[in-house]
Design a protein around this nucleic acid. Structure first.
Length: 468
RNA sequence: GGCCCCGUCGUCUAGCGGCCUAGGAUACUGGGUUUUCAUCCCAGAGAUCGGGGGUUCGAAUCCCCCCGGGGUCACCA
């Protein structure tokens, strides 16, 4: 049987980093097995639905290059792939279960359920449904839900591909609602029915689903369906080890994109979360990941998402990338013209960790005016002396016909000989005068990029400023 | 709290009974290259493998208990 896997995000907010993580592992496994990777939209919660969320998820996955074979609008024999488009299906299956005595209708009001929960909690009991409607024969209708009838005794167990055998006592499992009173299925019913109809062979999802898996297993058993293989990936964590969340960590894929993380770097980083390439290799391509992917190398400990290491990895990718390719990628991060990006890129390529840093690193080159601050540099010279030094540099520069790093260096050196200044002092003074900053790319290259006229203007401006 | 999962340097991890006086990466510190920054190179510090019992000639690796962390307990997914 050929492998079919899926991701099933809910369009309830920003495209989530966890979705990318799960998608990556599903995608890699599908590719390795030459199987199918399916995108299914779990939009059954009408109250939490967010307008553009599905679109954004799709855009994010495309950005990452994790392409899918079926869904939500891409053909496939077992669609549609949005759950709200298949409501009758779930209703039919729920009815089938009720008719078979494996589920029952329940008309307990939300108020009663809340009261029940509160009472149980005050008695320090585990909150769960008391089975009031279990033995009643109710007709389907408004304000009626369907609940799974969980056996009172015995155990439900299943095998998780990376964690081994996991067993739950049936008495600990609640009679979960499978069909809500609005006749929409809950996640449990919908995902089990869909996974079966879509012939999903491996359910690869996050660890947070581990404790509801027995309910799913019970559903499969009630229907008499064959179980898929379950794989629960470790949960990405905040620095305090709690489940990764908006409050404590950036989780939006849109944010990572806007920050200038390269999709291939983000994917590479994600692949090292809870998984390791044989041979201590940390930088690897998606193709290498696919080739070497192995469930046995999944670590079940929840990894902390460390943006510092992501930054390092992103920088590695930027440095490795060709200039031409980088220029293309930079276009959406700056208003600087393409030719100018290409021209100054060599100065900043190895200084960028994120593409969004390009403007900050290069803006001084293109600015019309800068306001250098001289007070903190070359303190052993008086302002007047510094101003004169800048004038000497201007004179030397004006004598050179060519404008390249070599001629600039020669001019600077001849000025320096007259001034009898140290290299570091004169270069630092010049650097601040032409850039406004004490840290820039190499001076000659920087001056060359700024251009002759502007350099001379700025040196004179600096001189005037010092004399004020 | 019940149930379930997990526990190797700050962080990501290698390790699946002897090759481990625990390796790599990142972050950090120092040094080198250098006109500043960054890159690059070298070095250092950093984990008695959560703790305690076993099993074994031998345990980070197997077993038990404890402790710690996390997840989950909705007409949300």
């Amino acid at each position: 049987m050929s492998v079919r896997v899926r991701i099933a995000p809910s369009p309830t907010g920003e495209p989530h980093i966890g979705t990318a993580y799960t998608a990556l592992f599903n995608f890699a496994f599908a590719k390795q097995e030459k199987g199918k990777f399916i995108l299914r939209i779990e939009d059954t919660d009408q109250t939490r639905l967010v307008q553009d969320a599905e679109k954004k998820i799709i855009e994010a996955l495309k950005w990452l290059g994790l392409s899918w074979d079926e869904g939500p609008d891409v053909g496939g024999p077992r669609g549609p792939y949005r759950q709200t488009e298949r409501l009758e299906t779930y209703q039919e299956y729920a009815r089938e279960l009720v008719n078979a005595g494996k589920a029952y209708f329940c008309d307990c009001s939300p108020e009663r359920l809340k009261r029940l929960r509160d009472e149980q909690q005050s008695r320090k009991e585990v909150p769960r449904y008391d089975g009031k409607c279990r033995a009643r024969i109710l007709k389907e209708g408004p304000n009626i839900v369907a609940r799974l009838s969980v056996p009172e005794e015995g155990v439900t167990s299943f095998r998780d591909q990376v964690r081994g055998e996991i067993t739950f006592q049936n008495k600990d499992i609640d009679d979960t609602i499978i069909l809500k009173s609005d006749k929409f299925p809950t996640y449990h019913l919908a995902s089990v029915v869909d996974d079966h109809i879509m012939e999903i062979t491996h359910v690869i999802r996050a660890e947070e689903w581990l404790s509801s898996t027995p309910k799913h297993v019970l559903l499969y058993q009630a229907f008499g369906w064959e179980l898929p293989t379950f794989v629960h990936l470790p949960l990405l964590r905040n620095p305090d080890r709690s489940k990764i969340s908006k409050r404590k960590n950036p989780i939006s894929l849109t944010w990572y994109r806007e920050q200038g993380y390269l999709p291939e770097a983000l994917l590479n980083y994600l692949a090292t979360m809870g998984w390791s390439m044989p041979g201590d290799k940390e930088i690897f391509t998606l193709e290498e990941f696919i080739k070497n992917f192995d469930f046995g190398r999944i670590d079940t400990t929840g990894p902390i998402f460390d943006t510092q290491k992501l930054d390092w990895m992103n920088g590695e990718y930027i440095r490795k990338m060709s200039y031409g390719e980088l220029v293309q990628r930079l276009k959406e991060f700056t208003k600087v013209k393409k030719e100018d990006i290409a021209r100054v890129l060599p100065l900043v390529k190895e200084r960028m960790k994120k593409l969004s840093e390009f403007d900050g690193l290069t803006s001084f080159i293109f600015k019309e005016e800068i306001s250098p601050e001289f007070s903190e540099i070359v303190k052993n010279y008086a302002n007047k002396v510094k101003a004169e030094a800048l004038e000497r540099v201007v004179e030397a520069l004006q004598k050179t016909a060519d404008w390249n790093t070599h001629s600039i260096e020669k001019a600077l050196e001849s000025a320096r000989e007259k001034l009898k200044w140290s290299k570091s002092d004169l270069y630092m003074l010049t650097r601040v005068a032409i850039s406004g900053s004490s840290t820039t790319p190499p001076l000659f290259e920087t001056m060359e990029a700024v251009g002759r006229d502007k350099v001379i203007d700025r040196l004179r401006g600096g001189s005037r400023r010092l004399l004020k």
